[in-house]
């Protein structure tokens, strides 16, 4: 099928087998390798991207279903020379080791902070109606869809907290 995907602000024309997931379209057809395949079944979060600003598992959705959507991958968040605040914080806090789950963690955290800003509660929120607080427990719960077998969880939470606090102060 011939489709157009908007990725990181740029349109890409593609001829794709309808079976192609967004993940495989990115990796195999566009050389956007930052989005990782860890399980291909929505069980690890390594493939997390943002679609219209929301984090999703790109392995569990078909590319042909996303014409007209704004897809943001890790490559769209920053470059080695110009890292996003979260990317820089992950480096500073060593929020990774092997690096394979990392783009997914960072895309997920990017979307997650917007969810918190929008006031969404989580499983660990005491009060469903109160604004969520920026506790370790809140961040850990909200980031639990991203497995890290190197187990940098403690440092991931520290990196996200630093960025979220800095942003809150800026507001």
């Amino acid at each position: 099928m011939h489709i157009t995907l908007s990725i990181n602000g740029k349109d890409h024309e593609l001829d794709l087998d309808p079976r192609t997931s967004v993940l495989d379209a990115l990796r195999d057809h566009l050389d956007l390798i930052g989005t990782k395949k860890g399980c291909d079944h929505g069980q690890c979060g390594a493939c997390t991207v943002l679609v219209n600003g929301r984090r999703i598992n790109s392995c569990l959705t078909l590319a042909v279903m996303h014409e007209g959507d704004a897809i943001t991958t890790i490559e769209g968040l920053g470059t080695p020379e110009a890292l996003s605040p979260l990317q820089a914080a992950f480096v500073a806090h060593d929020g990774f080791q092997c690096g394979y789950c990392t783009p997914g963690q960072i895309c997920s955290a990017t979307g997650m902070l917007e969810e918190m800003r929008a006031g969404w509660p989580s499983h660990v929120s005491e009060d469903l109606l109160a604004a969520p607080d920026l506790s370790d427990a809140e961040i850990s719960e909200r980031m639990s869809g991203n497995l890290c077998r190197c187990s940098a969880y403690t440092n991931i939470v520290a990196a996200i907290t630093e960025v979220a606090e800095a942003r809150d102060e800026a507001v």
Binding site: G42, G45, T48, R54, R55, I56, N57, L60, T61, S108, G111, M112, E115, P121, S122, H123, S125, L128, R142, M143, S144, G145, N146
Partner: peptide
Amino acid sequence: LSRALLSGASGQLRNK
């Protein structure tokens, strides 16, 4: 209902 939803799957999956 809100609680049940929030206990399910992950943030990414709940978005989809």
